[in-house]
Simulated assay, not measured.
Amino acid sequence: MDLFKLFSGKPSSKEVAKDRLKLILIHDRSNISPELLDMMKSDILEVISKYVIIDDGDIDVRLTRTKEVEGTSPALIASIPIKKMKER
C-alpha cells in the first residue's frame, strides 16, 4: 500500500509515468497518429457542441484497448464534461 497516495489523494509519479507509457504503447500499436486522434477529437467536439455546452478545460479523449473474445482491440474513450443542454 502506498501511504503517500492514501494521504495526498493524488497518484504517485510512478503511476502517472506507467499510465503515460501504456498510452504511448497503445497509440503505437493501433497505428493512429496523434494528428489523426486530434482530428477525431475536434470532429467529436463539433458534433456534441450542437446539442450541449461543454467544459473545454477538462476534456479527455484517448485511445485504449478493450479485451475481446479473440484478443484485444482499440477503443476510443472520451470524457467530455457537459455544462448544460442547449435549448431546442
Rank of each mutant, 00 (worst) to 15 (best):
S73L: 04
K50C: 08
R62A: 05
R65A: 09
E68I: 11
T64K: 04
A75M: 06
S79G: 01
E68W: 09
I77L: 12
E70F: 12
V61A: 00
V69R: 12
R62W: 07
S73G: 05
E68M: 11
D58I: 01
L63F: 08
R65N: 13
I53R: 03
E70I: 09
V61Y: 02
T66H: 08
P74K: 05
A75Y: 04
D55E: 14
D56A: 00
A78M: 05
A75Q: 07
T72L: 06
L63K: 03
V69C: 05
S73T: 11
D55I: 05
T64V: 09
A75D: 05
A78K: 00
E70T: 10
I59T: 02
S79Y: 09
T72Y: 13
V52L: 06
K50N: 13
T64I: 03
S79L: 09
I59V: 15
E70C: 01
T64C: 04
I54Y: 12
G57R: 06
L63P: 02
T66F: 08
V61H: 00
T66K: 13
P74N: 08
I53D: 14
D55W: 01
D56Y: 07
K67H: 13
S73R: 10
T72K: 08
S73V: 08
A78V: 07
D60L: 02
D60A: 01
P74W: 11
I53V: 14
